[in-house]
Design a protein around this nucleic acid. Structure first.
Lengths: 188, 188
DNA sequence: TGCAGACCGGGGCCTCTCTCCGCATTTTAT
DNA sequence: ATAAAATGCGGAGAGAGGCCCCGGTCTGCA
């Protein structure tokens, strides 16, 4: 299902340049970064940008699919290295780090776990949701996680932890702290 | 420290009308609602709006101070009615509801618990932070809450829970669910 | 070498912010 | 009650920035 006709060399060059610049821009200015500005920084005309990516959402997704998929892969690595409970927590930590560091990704990861699943983000969100499901179920099977939580709930809570950590302006320590509070509970 | 000279009658009328309309607009369109539109809806010129509220932040705060203060008051009511642990949870629930329902308030409550305390929001955030401190300390004294959490951490987590609940698109059930998970912990 | 396909970036159109100053309304003094 | 002074009002319009289309130009590929 690749292009019937392969992309022309210059087209591919511009396409990739745009992706790279877009990722930087979204990370720096959030999901509302100026598209014209991205085009300019990539050294292409705005028309070129809009031809490759008809909508802002399209660009946002294209810029971060690989990162989302990397999260999916990472889940399996962690599952192979650590006991299920720890693997899950470690992975959630990485999800939170990604959410905070790459600001444009927040909305993507967010919409990946929203009820009204935007048809667009569903595609790449699946990888993350699948990873979460595997880790959660493994942890539950080992008795490391209460049995009555859904994978999607865990993802949503992770998003919440990321938000909370962001408020603290912490660069990572807060994430572990809040994840640990979430795991152990606020009761004594 | 009231006005040396009381506000002119028409000025006061406009001022209050603006506050009312602004609260609605922020609730509906989030914190980036168009200011000109607010002026129009209030039936005043934009000049009038900018004279009363030089910045967007000023208007946002003015529109919601009373609501923030109401949260502070509510904390004491709950503390009088319920045992400390329940009072805290019930209050956090109300904070979350406010965060979600009144979208413009999200940023206010958010900046009220941020590290780099914006001088502006500090003033009205104090009421909420004070309330949180009282409830948290009472709950800890009763042994209903682990002793090593700070009030500000609890507020941040509440903000996180609100965010997580928003993702679920739930109208309130999710909030209680997530608060309960947070309280009891994810461990079995 | 020809041409389909890609590029470029000016410009139209939009929305939003915020200022300015003549005019209207309220207040105060008589 | 009336006039003068003080104060606030309005809304046009400049300026900034964003989105995105279009048509003339260029380029990679067969």
């Amino acid at each position: 299902m690749t292009q019937v006709r392969p992309m022309r060399a210059d087209a591919r060059r511009n396409y990739e340049r745009l992706l790279k610049v877009a990722a930087e821009a979204f990370a720096e200015h959030g999901e509302n970064a100026s598209l014209d500005d991205i085009a300019k920084r990539a050294g292409v005309g705005s028309g070129t940008l809009y031809r490759h990516f008809p909508t802002r959402q399209a660009l946002l997704e294209a810029a971060y699919v690989d990162r989302l998929e990397a999260l999916g892969t990472r889940a399996d690595e962690l599952a192979a290295e650590l006991p299920p409970g720890e693997a899950l927590m470690e992975w959630l930590n990485e999800v939170c780090v990604a959410t905070i560091q790459v600001r444009g990704m927040k909305s993507l990861l967010g919409s990946a776990v929203t009820d009204g699943s935007s048809a667009a983000s569903t595609a790449c969100g699946t990888s993350v949701q699948g990873a979460a499901t595997r880790l959660v179920e493994a942890a539950q099977a080992e008795g490391a996680l209460r049995a009555d939580v859904e994978p999607i709930e865990v993802l949503r809570l992770a998003h919440g932890v990321a938000t909370a950590s962001e408020l603290a302006h912490g660069q990572g320590r807060e994430i572990r702290r809040f994840l640990s509070l979430l795991t152990e509970g606020l009761r004594p």
